[in-house]
Nucleic acid binder design. Structure first.
Lengths: 82, 82
DNA sequence: TTGCTATTAGGCAAATCTGCCTAATAGAAT
DNA sequence: ATTCTATTAGGCAGATTTGCCTAATAGCAA
């Protein structure tokens, strides 16, 4: 009999999705001619957060997707089309 | 001169969005005739997690949205249409 | 060069989510 | 009532995100 310590499963992150979403947001932002800082101000989010999302470093939430979509004047669903 | 401790801003959560997303996922799941447990198995997610998402209690992530959409056989963007 | 703006990087604490588990509740059918 | 399945609830620790901040880097214009 041996006792084995089984590590917990990590949270699921799809880096492909994170990267693609970030690129999509960046595209829409640039179409509007906004800087990251400007978008952050309009959303009342931190610049660093916008940057992390665009770079695909974080697995952001539905609420943030809706907030950003609204600010960019696009449908939230559109940000997931890739 | 007084020193004031300013509480940090809470994370942004749009409960309307969370609830609507949950309802949408539930609708699609029921259309497939799946139980929450079955969907959870297919996604390799916890049943409790599926339940919390459907009830709109949590502000879930893009990766999870894509995972669930794939399992339900719908486009991720479709889950954000409401 | 200098100056200015934009982007990227990263640290830190607190908030939140997720995985994992058990249990309670609801509802239907027998 | 009992049994069975489905849903809901909730606790807990660890992982991740977020808010807040400062700084470094890139790029461009004058």
């Amino acid at each position: 009999m041996t006792l084995v310590l089984v590590p917990r499963q990590k949270q699921y992150r799809d880096e492909q999705v994170m990267l693609k979403l970030g690129q999509k947001i960046r595209d829409k932002r640039l179409q509007k001619g906004f800087s990251q800082a400007h978008l952050a101000n309009l959303c009342n989010l931190e610049l660093s957060q916008i940057n992390r999302i665009e770079l695909g470093k974080i697995n952001t939430s539905v609420s943030h997707i809706f907030l950003i979509a609204k600010t960019l004047g696009v449908k939230p669903a559109e940000l997931l089309e890739f």
